[in-house]
């Protein structure tokens, strides 16, 4: 009997939480370093296609991004639209939009929805060529090699 009483009297040892901030800070720094904050609000829905022969963008922050896809919150069969920075752009507005941004020699990343037809993509490509920006990357997800 006395044995039980004794153990009940003993105060339970508490887990020290003193190192908790350190652990959390470590995680925090990890995520801070790997984060690329999305500055641009997407106005179009883009589901990238898959491909295997991919190259990493050299510097995502220094890249011009062009989005082509259906406008968000539109009818299911709406025509695809072009988004550059935070604005919708008409086909013939692509060249002016990408020539005055101070990123003249950088890559143009084309983020095109996989359901889009080549017509609009070709038009945008022609505009990019007119703006004399010849380095282009078709953005895609890495395909798992089978």
């Amino acid at each position: 009997m006395s044995k039980f009483k004794k153990s009940a009297k003993k105060k339970q040892a508490q887990v020290s939480t003193a190192s908790l901030p350190d652990i959390v800070f470590m995680l925090l720094f990890f995520f801070m370093v790997v984060t690329v904050i999305r500055q641009k609000e997407a106005l179009v829905d883009v589901k990238l296609p898959k491909a295997s022969e991919l190259t990493k963008l050299v510097d995502p922050r220094k890249t011009e991004h062009i989005y082509i896809g259906k406008p968000r919150r539109s009818e299911p069969n709406a025509a695809p639209a072009i988004q550059i920075n935070d604005k919708f752009v008409k086909k013939d507005g692509v060249a002016p939009a990408i020539s005055g941004s101070g990123l003249e020699n950088e890559t143009v990343a084309l983020k095109v929805d996989k359901g889009v037809t080549m017509g609009i993509v070709t038009d945008v490509k022609t505009e990019i060529r007119k703006a004399n920006r010849l380095k282009v990357q078709y953005m895609a997800y890495q395909d798992v090699v089978d």
């Binding site: 925090l28 801070m32 984060t35 991919l54 190259t55 282009v136 890495q142």
Partner: peptide, 19 residues
């Protein structure tokens, strides 16, 4: 930071367009 992170690096097929 957990919420805003996109870990998958941006990749794409590199193409050089003709002038």
């Amino acid at each position: 930071f957990l919420v805003t992170t996109t870990i998958n690096a941006e990749k794409g097929i590199m193409v050089k367009l003709p002038p």
